[in-house]
């Protein structure tokens, strides 16, 4: 077992230092690259927090959908091949929901401010809150 602080805490502290103290001193192309670098650290922090649960859920969905076990890479390869060959499509039970959930889980890490992602999450919240009739 490793000591604290956790990787998330360390990356967060480093990103905050770069953002708050170094960024204001930078100009031009270096400022641009620093901003991209800070974005990378923030992404890693999100991945450390979210990936274990989303990977486990993805594997569980794929195991059910494909009716077989395997590594996440193997299962994704099998799904990709099934779609390419027309054996699986959006009408296949579970495929549409799986593709959506997997993609939303990727965006939550890669780019939670992306317009399409924010729109889909808002709409999901609205329909979750709407009274069922």
């Amino acid at each position: 077992m490793q000591d604290d602080p956790t990787p998330r805490e360390l990356i967060g502290a480093a990103a905050d230092f770069l953002r708050n103290e170094i960024m204001p001193q930078m100009k031009g192309h270096s400022a641009f690259k620093l901003r991209v670098s800070i974005n990378a650290l923030d992404l890693v922090a999100r991945q450390l927090a979210l990936e274990p649960a989303s990977d486990a859920a993805e594997a569980a969905r794929l195991t059910k959908l494909l009716g077989r076990d395997g590594s996440l890479a193997d299962l994704n390869r099998a799904l990709a091949e099934g779609i390419a060959k027309g054996k699986l499509d959006l009408e296949t039970l579970g495929v549409r929901d799986h593709l959506w959930q997997t993609t939303l889980d990727k965006l939550a890490i890669d780019q939670p401010n992306y317009g399409s992602y924010k729109r889909e999450m808002e709409e999901a919240n609205v329909s979750a809150k709407a009274p069922s009739s």
């Binding site: 670098s37 990378a40 993609t103 939303l104 399409s116």
Partner: peptide, 15 residues
């Protein structure tokens, strides 16, 4: 680092 981070934008096109 720019190219690395553009690599992580492919999921935007998936959504």
């Amino acid at each position: 680092i720019e190219r690395a981070m553009i690599g992580r934008r492919s999921s935007e096109t998936e959504i």
